[in-house]
Design a protein around this nucleic acid. Structure first.
Lengths: 186, 186
DNA sequence: ACCTGAACACCGTTCAAGT
DNA sequence: ACCTGAACACCGTTCAAGT
């Protein structure tokens, strides 16, 4: 994670966004407070309100930036189309459950549950990912209906596992394999 | 939902708890504010602080009360043991995804994600439910390992669907059937 | 025992004033 | 253009005082 720090030069919108991602990753949605952002960036609250009209506008900036991060994942998934059926799904599940920005991913999903606009942004990204997963099932030879159902279940399982997070760090590899075996059974 | 209202007589702890459940169901964790509770019960904040030492203690009272509600569900599941394999799982999934107190259930799970102590309470209830689901798979003839894996996936799917909530009201019956068919495939 | 009412700290927001 | 500093409303918390 990038450490956004004050260095004398004026702040950019991206400085505020990066600081926000850091707070979200470290402490979840409730840690995202204007006061803490200002501490981190070593400015006063007035500075925040010069860059953003209010907290709501800042949220929008954050979810836009997050959507851009997700475009990278989508491109990664498109790239995966070269890989054959099961291996491709396995790689997808790995990416779904433990992405590069795991803590941020989780914080955004938690945040979405109490914030309509964040929710919309997350759902939009999810739909793209889900359609790639469905495509993978189609390529494995399932018909439309089966592919739709199985991809929905696999995706919901991933989200469920992400939230349960009994073992926060990593879902054990054997479980990932078993889940896939089950999802691919005819 | 019970409407807790002031009637002249002194308030009980349960009055505060019921008012809290109502706020949680209507507006989620962020709607649970002392000020709103007092409006609802037509008292001032000092009254709250006579019944509870602080917000943290009130949280504990709420999650205890919620755990008691869940004991009813567990008893319902134990009662279901009389039913044979697949029908029993179907009834369980219905109860998992659309319980009597759907909005409260969802609010508690969302709340748990930003509150350690609520999280522990939810996990404790979940473990009991999960072990009943695992038992159902065992009774369907799966061995220990398979039953553990399939019950985990089915439960995670339920949680995932509960959170996605694209269609908030109800998961369509055919999907529920398809998911079960998949989970029971050998 | 049960509650009021006033006080204080904290946080989001506004805005006139500074460089 | 970019930021400070003081002000205000809102909310969690405390506590002396009331019945």
């Amino acid at each position: 994670m990038t450490l956004a720090r004050r260095t004398g030069c004026p702040l950019t919108v991206d400085d505020w966004v990066q600081a926000g991602f850091a707070l979200l990753s470290e402490g979840g949605p409730n840690a995202l407070r204007i006061g803490r952002l200002c501490e981190r960036l070593e400015v006063t609250k007035g500075s925040f309100y010069w860059h953003f009209t209010d907290m709501c506008a800042y949220r929008t900036a954050l979810s836009d930036a997050w959507a851009n991060l997700h475009d990278e994942r989508r491109r990664h998934f498109e790239f995966l189309r070269a890989i054959e059926g099961r291996d491709r799904l396995e790689e997808m599940v790995r990416a779904l459950i433990r992405p590069d920005h795991w803590a941020l991913e989780r914080a955004m999903r938690i945040w979405a549950m109490t914030d309509e606009s964040i929710m919309r942004s997350v759902q939009q990204s999810d739909e793209r990912v889900l359609s790639e997963v469905r495509q993978a099932f189609l390529d494995c030879g399932f018909d439309d209906e089966e592919a739709a159902m199985r991809s929905s279940v696999l995706f919901a399982t991933g989200v469920g596992l992400l939230h349960e997070a009994r073992v926060v760090e990593e879902t054990p590899t054997p479980l990932r394999g078993q889940v896939l075996d089950l999802m691919l059974r005819r």
